[in-house]
């Protein structure tokens, strides 16, 4: 039913990214606030609001994760990284209070992934962040499981819209289990159907390729 022409690589979630995971590639484009700790000559164009050619020390700006991760070093301070506000203390209290009310899709959508990546940057809050990530996941697990195992043949968009990307993937796997069982029970599994690959296969015309 959901056979695909390729096997998607799942996101790495932890501090290590999966090189081939599309989710992790998108994740590495997430911007977050940083502060430069030394002057960057000739990189003024990175900061749209200033006209100067160089990027002076102490500029506050947003950089994508891949860049800040590359520039960040513990010994030579080039950048200091600020936490996005979802991972700050204020939001952490919200997550500890009731993780189910938060719209993680709006907050993330890579709440868990970005949070784990944030642990790369030295911060005294790191253990707390890791703890909150885990507790949030555990707190939301029941909701994700129940909705994915019960929503059969109905519109799932309202159930999914508040889920993080990671939870969405879980939701899908729960749904595939449920759908598989239901179609077996209804006797639909015994009917032979053409593979989706065959249905979607269209021979490319030579003219299309050359055009």
């Amino acid at each position: 039913m959901d056979a695909q022409s390729y096997h998607p690589v799942s996101p790495g979630v932890g501090t290590e990214e999966n090189f081939l995971s599309l989710d992790d590639i998108l994740l590495s484009h997430q911007r977050h606030p940083v502060r430069t700790e030394c002057a960057f000559p000739r990189l003024g164009f990175l900061d749209r609001s200033s006209d100067s050619e160089d990027l002076p020390e102490g500029t506050k700006m947003e950089l994508p994760l891949w860049l800040s991760k590359g520039l960040y070093e513990r010994k030579r301070r080039v950048l200091s990284v600020e936490l996005p506000k979802v991972y700050k203390e204020g939001w952490r209290t919200v997550f500890t209070a009731d993780p189910n009310v938060v719209n993680l899709h709006k907050m993330g959508p890579y709440y868990y992934g970005l949070g784990s990546q944030m642990l790369h940057f030295d911060s005294p809050e790191n253990p707390d962040i890791a703890q909150t990530l885990l507790q949030t996941f555990i707190g939301r697990f029941r909701r994700v499981m129940d909705s994915s195992q019960n929503a059969y043949n109905e519109d799932t968009s309202t159930l999914v819209e508040r889920l993080d990307c990671l939870e969405k993937a879980l939701f899908r796997s729960g749904q595939s289990g449920l759908n598989g069982f239901q179609s077996w029970e209804k006797g639909r599994a015994s009917q032979l159907t053409a593979s989706s690959l065959v249905i979607n296969y269209r021979k490319r015309k030579m003219a299309d390729v050359q055009a």
Partner: peptide, 14 residues
């Protein structure tokens, strides 16, 4: 699997 990874974050961080 996800939970395991989030949990190993905890140890790596500390």
């Amino acid at each position: 699997n996800c939970m395991f990874k989030l949990r190993s974050n905890l140890q790596a961080g500390s």
